[in-house]
Write a protein that binds this DNA or RNA. Structure first.
Lengths: 344, 344
DNA sequence: CTGTTAGCGCTTTCAC
DNA sequence: GTGAAAGCGCTAACAG
């Protein structure tokens, strides 16, 4: 059916070839190459030289089959398009890649059927663990517990508390934003949020309300929800300013919204940050560092989240017994730029 | 799914277990499960039932070892951060993922040493092929030809014409931009470009010059190079308008630059597109669909490029003999929005 | 120190 | 139709 010998010019050398050429047995060659067991220096040298000369590279497949572990993990994303997935993926790839672990990337396109399919493929390939990366912080269905390998959920937590999930702390992010505005001596704060179907929107709003309450303050106007776009930011800002002309700060649900807010403020002749301070969310650099002025924002440390997910998975891969569970909310970080503090 | 009721620690069942429980030999079980050879219907049914019941999933490792092919490919990126890589990666994952192929993702972080390391890891895992994705369209060093598997270069072409590379046609993109502006009755066209250390910048500029020349026109002012940022777009637009107040269109080297240009035009009271038409490059949606007005741009069809790269690699994986070489420049696409054509 | 032996889990001749 | 046997490439006992 298939002829395996159709390999091109450079057919990967095998250990037995090395052994034969070096004039030793396969097991001796193996020991020599892996630095294991007692092998005479002279023999080892000869084997290594031979291996190098004929370009021997150990077949990981065979090793894995024997060892029962492959040194691979699956990265199951629901949506590669989303910009949140990428840094997480980088962080994970980073944490693993430094070692011996390689990553299988699978995109389920937000399709449950497809996800099951990919999951099965990963298990057939005998990955040692799986990271599931979602694109929203809303909980997602668990993959279940009858899996032969540990699973960590990143960004989108699992809806099952028996799973281990890592997600950014949006509530803390909301608090952080307000605390910064308060520190900038702002007290008449408005809030323009994004798509109300996202848990992130509500979590941030809650954090904002908490921090204001703790300071004995109230929001100017109601929180405004619609979508995560500049257009909405522009429109909402106009509305907010019409109803509350005295606001001295606007906390935004995303950087896109904040960009829109900046535009409207400029149109209306309000100076930023002197008259009105503006803070975004996500720290999406292409938006935050190109605006006038540059945009203060909250960074979710997604790369760090990816790294931690990888570490957690790595740990779980070692401990077949005790598997930590629950949702960990990772700290976020304030990035101060010119939209809240005047540059000198 | 299946539960490992028998073994709590969900140890993946093996074929021999299926065979034993079904009361047949391993080889019969194998044939039954793979629909190969002559197996009595009754036997096949029994085997399949058993396999399903104990949750048997074939170990791909063992299969691959035997077959000499793994059904995996390596995706070697130089920089996951860059936004160009992602759609390519999606396209590739898409084209492969539909079938049986899984993708190993490796990020070399732009480091040659690390790239060699990753390459070796991929070869050790016996990938059937490799796609190398760069973040600029400047040629990159070839991985060489003594590799046991085919390689396709995506976005960044290889500097060796004996390799197969797929990259977007930036020159055609430049022409497309100008042809569109001409079609919009613009003749006094200025050009603000990006970082001159990028081949993309010069390719686009060349296309622009060609198309203008073909129409018997000349650029208003010299092409301006600096960086791919909104700030530069703002500054350059002010300069361009000061020196050539009569320009009726500005072709930009990127969407970021175009966004900056839009801002300056608005500041100066020029209407877009009535007084001045603006066209960007890259069709980065977060920028193009949020501006006032929305931005006409050139889309490099990167997802398509990823898909084609996957197909090319797939083809090469089948044909060990004849390997197409050279750099293919894939067509780009004009996306018309309100910055060049007035909305009604 | 070195080689022989026995697999990892699976597919594939090739007898029965 | 079915099963025994021979590996894919490698490692890990265990003898020599």
């Amino acid at each position: 059916m298939h002829a395996g010998q159709a390999t091109p010019s450079t057919y990967p050398a095998t250990l037995s070839e090395v052994a034969r050429i070096a004039g030793v047995s396969v097991s001796t060659a193996s020991k020599a190459i892996n630095g294991r067991g007692d092998v005479a220096d002279e023999t080892r040298k000869r084997v290594l030289e031979t291996a190098d000369r004929i370009g021997f590279t150990p077949n990981q497949l065979a090793r894995s089959l024997l060892a029962g572990r492959t040194g691979t993990v699956g990265l199951l994303t629901s949506d590669l398009e989303g910009r949140f997935v990428l840094p997480i993926l980088m962080g994970a790839e980073d944490a693993f890649g430094a070692g011996q672990v390689n990553v299988f990337l699978c995109d389920a396109r937000g399709d449950t059927i497809r996800e099951q399919h990919q999951l099965k493929a990963l298990l057939n390939r005998r990955v040692d663990g799986i990271i599931v990366v979602g694109r929203q912080t809303d909980p997602r269905p668990s993959l279940g517990h009858d899996l032969p390998v540990p699973v960590v959920y990143a960004y989108s937590p699992s809806d099952d508390p028996a799973d281990l999930s890592l997600t950014p702390d949006n509530e803390a992010g909301g608090r952080l934003a307000i605390e910064h505005l308060l520190a900038c001596d702002r007290t008449r704060i408005g809030h323009i949020n994004g798509d109300p179907s996202y848990a992130a929107a509500h979590d941030r709003a809650r954090g904002i309300a908490q921090a204001l309450g703790a300071a004995g303050l109230e929001l100017r106007g109601e929180p405004m929800f619609s979508e995560w776009s500049e257009r909405w930011g522009r429109d909402a800002a106009a509305m907010l300013l019409a109803q509350n002309p005295d606001v001295d700060a606007i906390a935004c649900g995303s950087d896109q919204i904040a960009r829109g807010v900046l535009d409207t403020l400029r149109d209306l002749g309000r100076r930023v940050p002197e008259d009105v301070a503006v803070i975004g969310y996500d720290n999406w650099e292409v938006l935050t560092t190109n605006s006038r002025p540059e945009l203060t924002s909250i960074d979710a440390n997604l790369q760090q989240l990816g790294r931690e997910s990888a570490l957690a998975l790595f740990h779980a891969m070692g401990n077949a017994v005790e598997r930590p569970a629950g949702t960990r909310h990772l700290p976020v970080r304030l990035v101060i730029r010119g939209s809240t503090i005047a540059r000198r």
